[in-house]
Write a protein that binds this DNA or RNA. Structure first.
Length: 421
RNA sequence: GUGGAGGUAGCUCAGUCGGUAGAGCUCCAGGUUGUGGCCCUGGCGGUCGCGGGUUCGAAUCCCGUCCUUCACCCCA
């Protein structure tokens, strides 16, 4: 079997599926606009160092999931594995700190991660995302979360729950991490091998572990939310209050430690019970240290990403009906085919959705296609009983015919099609 | 990287105890010396994922391999 296939973890969207995708993105564009977010487009690949520095050397993404390659000039480049670092890079590169803050942006683009595919997980997947950069106000955290909630509501994404947590900031996290590490060291014998590594690299990640014995240790572990500094505590409480006031019911989840190193303070994740094991449909958080980490001035930011494939799964399949042609041009005589072709072009130029046979079908075959295409009208050329220079318009949905001069057909059909729509 | 399940026509699948491959849908044509969706008939379409082994004979049994899929890790 040498026939080429789509690479592992990638997929094609055939027209019906692409139309469904377009419909989702169109809803998103409208919701983003309502919240004052404007779309940005960044490159599909970046310098590898952007992700290594921005996302964190210790993360799975950087350690084992990046599509990294060297170009012919010897540069190390990486296909974008996540959306936030590139946008922060663009914010810095173009001096967006001079715009009114916060700068509110959204994106829709593919992400690339080398992982084993499974339900709702791909090596190339599409994300919709929002970033609000330049304000540390708790209201911004609440706004981006409410934006995502409204998007899900308008799309009909169901079975949702919202988990939130706070990761603290440089004032309180180091002390907490030390405390956690101490707790884990005390019971290291009960931890799995992975967690013993995490203990050294990043103890917070042990909260992700599902191994029974580790969970027992972590159930007794101190939680970061209980050890936040005053500023972080106040920020978190305000975010929660704003969300509740807006009608959301955020569930505190001390275990919600997302796998990207740049998060500070608020983290959140929407999950849906309509998905498989990969139940997260959208999530994000605040990243007040990221831009500084990239070499810029200290600049706060908050945002999220949401997977289009998972949104599709959680919405249920919605079949987007193709826009049927309004007119189908049929030629009954072989020497009328060019006239039919010309007529179709004139109809299209007049804004009428028009199809005609491009496969040399018999007249019967053409009518069959016309019927199946969903067109409301067929234009018949080349019938023996037609007057010279005339064509016949036939209603396909109820019957009924009228003959008109070829020259008048475009105007007549444009009018009929306009009435029908 | 690890584990489970599965690869037969473009799609969805059947194929008995090993005997040399079928159905439905789609597509095309005819039924209707030129008027459609339904219906009827016919046609197109398969190295049974690939390689090796057992056998007189393999889609079927064995081994390997690739791919798909679900799950772990982690994320969208």
């Amino acid at each position: 079997m040498t026939a080429p296939r789509a690479p592992k973890g990638t997929y094609d969207l055939l027209p019906d599926e692409a139309a469904a995708r377009d419909a989702v993105v169109a809803v998103a564009a409208r919701v983003f606009a309502a919240f004052g977010y404007r779309r940005v487009v960044t490159p599909e690949f970046e310098e590898t160092g952007l992700f290594a520095r921005g996302v964190g050397e210790a993360t799975d993404i950087v350690r084992k999931e990046m599509y990294t390659f060297e170009d012919k000039g010897g540069r190390s480049l990486t296909l974008r594995p996540e959306g936030t670092a590139p946008i922060c890079r663009a914010y810095l590169e173009h001096g967006l700190h001079k715009w009114p803050q916060p700068v509110k942006l959204w994106y829709y683009c593919p992400m690339f991660r080398y992982e084993r595919p499974q339900a709702g997980r791909y090596r190339e997947h599409y994300q919709l995302g929002a970033e609000a950069i330049g304000s540390a106000e708790s209201m911004v955290d609440a706004e981006v979360i409410l934006l995502l909630a409204q998007l899900f509501a308008e799309l009909g994404v169901g079975g949702l729950r919202l988990a939130v947590n706070s990761m603290g900031d440089p004032a309180c996290r180091p002390a907490y991490v030390a405390r956690l590490r101490e707790h884990l060291r005390g019971r290291e014998a009960e931890l799995c091998g992975d967690c013993r590594e995490r203990l050294e690299l990043n103890p917070l990640r042990t909260f992700d572990c599902k191994v029974e014995s580790c969970r027992a240790v972590l159930d007794d572990a101190p939680h970061l939310v209980d050890h936040l500094c005053g500023d972080c505590r106040e920020h978190f409480d305000r975010v929660l209050a704003l969300l509740r006031r807006a009608g959301l019911e955020p569930e505190l989840d001390p275990r919600l430690v997302r796998g990207l190193d740049y998060y500070t303070r608020t983290t959140f994740e929407f999950s849906s019970d309509r998905l498989g094991a990969q139940s997260g449909v959208g999530g994000g958080g605040r990243y007040d240290g990221l831009i500084e980490q990239l070499g810029g001035p200290s600049t706060p930011g908050v945002g999220w990403g949401a997977g289009l494939e998972r949104i599709g799964l959680a919405m249920g399949e919605t079949d987007a009906a193709a826009a049927a042609p309004q007119v189908y041009v049929v030629s009954f005589a072989g020497d009328e085919r060019e006239a039919a072709f010309a007529l179709a072009q004139r109809l299209r130029a007049a804004g009428v959705r028009t199809e005609l046979d491009l496969a040399a079908r018999s007249p019967k075959g053409q009518l069959k296609q016309a019927g199946r295409s969903g067109a409301a009208w067929a234009v018949l050329l080349g019938l023996d009983d037609l007057a010279a220079g005339a064509v016949r318009l036939r209603r396909l949905d109820g019957g009924g015919e009228e003959d008109v001069a070829l020259e008048a057909a475009v105007e007549r059909l444009a009018r009929l099609a306009g009435e029908a729509s």
